[in-house]
Nucleic acid binder design. Structure first.
Length: 505
RNA sequence: UCCUUGAUAGCUCAGCUGGUUAGAGCGAGUGACUGUUAAUCACUAGGUCCCUGGUUCGAGCCCAGGUCAGGGAGCCA
């Protein structure tokens, strides 16, 4: 058995493929089958004069997503997807599919999410999840080559780690247990044993968030390094992200093209990441400091103006096409074309109107930003749109950050946390920092955060036996996939997303 | 939890100021035609207008409450 992606090795030879019918068109004496086998797509042509009559009949009856075994000769044909075509010599039906719910037309997101188990078969989803696979593989490659040890943190936890987000509570032999929202504290323990480690596992947050960047269950990579300070941590983050980006650019050209990803920002992201302090970031958000001659508030205002102009032209184009198709005498094909075009424009219009409602809120929030607060989603968006490369923001007011972060020794009002904000408006993809090493200071912080001290005794032990400077970070896999693929929403970056209101399929 | 937008055929949507029998495209079925790329053309079938209550001579449309979904805020990766 041969896979479609190997066809180049079999030019001129006869092969047998097994797969599913992605599309089928009939002609007199000919049946065209777009075969999908998981590795790629390939057109197979069944010619009535060249195969036995029963098999030709079967070919004509194949419904969308029917399973089939096809034998035929591999012919080079530049016009085809993948560059090859199969001239069928034999065909065996494995299963005739019932009417496939996902048509070749546009669908709404709710319907597609209900059909997620089938939606995965469509080309775009296939490409995105293959890129996800490449990202996962290159994450392991990077850390393994850098001498990190992969270590798993537990998923059931008894304590509330950071005590900030809402946790999923489960029953653990009669006691409450929580699904892990971070493996970080365990990562620190493992780093003290192995030097450099990384965890890679699922993470659960019971936040009732309905936004484009939240999932209830997501995968997080959390490296932790003994003897690293915040600056070495930032060096590592930069090298790591650039390695992954480069791997995706090298290995996923076809997939990136399929999803229509303009890769220019991925390429510019291979240059140095700017490192801003919180103070710098606030000045930029409030419009007090320009970046490359761009002002955050002004650029938002310009964008709003652009959106409004685009709404006007879109409405005009819709009206124009509606007038055109209303004139009698237009061919049906042309009417169809215009109608799909109108539908697409109307969808675009909805998005634009959404922006029109949101941008003024963002402008307000940026103008009124209060020094000392954490950055909100819109603030991140405001900053990252000014850069064509990820930005690192470090040294945050200690009140807004987790209890375990070390203070900047030169100015103790800042905690040595670092967030990486992805460009193109994607916002936070990495959060991390240098950890507090002093037991007494940690105890104070735990009390300040009103956390149960007893649950942290094991963690505090780490500061009793050879406490050393150490640092680490957490990367949200889905947010990285979402950015690299330039998706509108994280829900397409994972095979079966779990989010507020979504547990099936 | 708050703000905001929406729910009409299997799917995507239209339905004007409340007015007789609710429409289109896609998909499905039947047939015609063609090396086709979401093919094309003709015909056929397909509806609890989200739910409950209200206003009205009359409600898909107006009002109230609810359910579900999209987008955003908070929170976060």
């Amino acid at each position: 058995m041969v896979y479609i992606k190997q066809l180049a090795e079999y030019e001129g030879k006869e092969v047998t493929l097994k797969g599913w019918v992605a599309n089928r068109r009939d002609s007199k004496g000919l049946v065209f089958i777009n075969l999908r086998d998981g590795s790629g797509l390939c057109q197979c042509v069944a010619d009535e004069s060249k195969i036995i009559a029963d098999e030709f009949d079967q070919a004509g009856k194949l419904s969308l997503e029917s399973a089939v075994e096809i034998t035929g000769n591999v012919v080079k044909d530049e016009r085809q997807i993948g560059g090859f075509e199969i001239q069928v010599t034999a065909l065996k039906t494995i299963h005739i599919a019932e009417e496939f719910p996902i048509a070749k037309k546009e669908h709404g997101i709710e319907f597609l999410m209900d059909q997620r188990h089938l939606w995965l078969r469509s080309q775009r989803q296939w490409a995105i999840l293959r890129i996800r696979n490449t990202i996962i593989y290159s994450i392991h490659n990077f850390f393994q080559k850098e001498g990190f040890v992969q270590m798993d943190a537990p998923i059931f936890t008894g304590n509330a780690c950071e005590g900030t987000s809402n946790l999923f509570e489960t029953d653990f032999y009669g006691d409450p247990a929580y699904l892990s929202q971070s493996g970080q504290l365990y990562g620190e323990a493992m780093a003290m044993a192995f030097g450099k480690i990384y965890t890679f596992g699922p993470t659960f947050r019971a936040e009732k968030s309905k936004t484009r960047r939240h999932l209830s269950e997501f995968w997080m990579i959390e490296p932790e390094m003994a003897f690293y300070d915040i600056h070495q941590n930032m060096d590592l983050i930069e090298g790591f992200l650039q390695f992954v980006i480069k791997e995706v650019l090298d290995k996923c050209q076809a997939e990136l093209k399929l999803i229509d990803r303009d890769t220019s920002v991925l390429e510019t992201s291979l240059k140095k990441f700017p490192r801003l302090t919180y103070d710098d970031a606030v000045a930029i958000i409030k419009g007090e400091k320009d970046v490359n001659g761009q002002n955050s508030i002004k650029s938002l205002e310009n964008e709003l103006a652009d959106v409004e102009a685009k709404i006007a032209t879109t409405i005009a184009e819709i009206a124009d096409r509606e007038v055109k198709i209303a004139v009698p005498g237009m061919k049906k094909g042309e009417i169809n074309f215009n109608q799909t075009k109108i539908a697409a424009l109307k969808n675009e219009l909805k998005d634009l109107e959404e922006s029109q409602r949101n941008i003024p809120q963002w402008i307000e929030s940026a103008k009124n930003f209060r020094y000392g607060n954490d950055l909100g989603g819109s603030d991140e968006t405001v900053i990252t749109r000014l850069f064509d490369v990820p930005v690192m923001v470090y040294d945050w007011p200690h009140e807004v950050k987790a209890f375990y972060l070390k203070r900047n020794p030169d100015n103790t009002r800042f905690a040595r946390g670092v967030d990486v904000l992805a460009p193109e408006g994607y916002g936070e993809i990495v959060g991390g920092g240098e950890r507090e090493t002093d037991e007494k200071k940690l105890r104070e912080k735990i009390i300040e955060h009103d956390l149960p001290m007893a649950d942290f005794e094991w963690y505090l032990d780490l500061r009793k036996y050879g406490s050393v400077p150490h640092a680490g970070f957490g990367l949200g896999l889905e947010r990285l996939v979402t950015w690299l693929c330039k998706l509108k929403h994280v829900r397409e970056s994972i095979p079966f997303p779990r989010m507020y209101g979504r547990l099936l399929p």
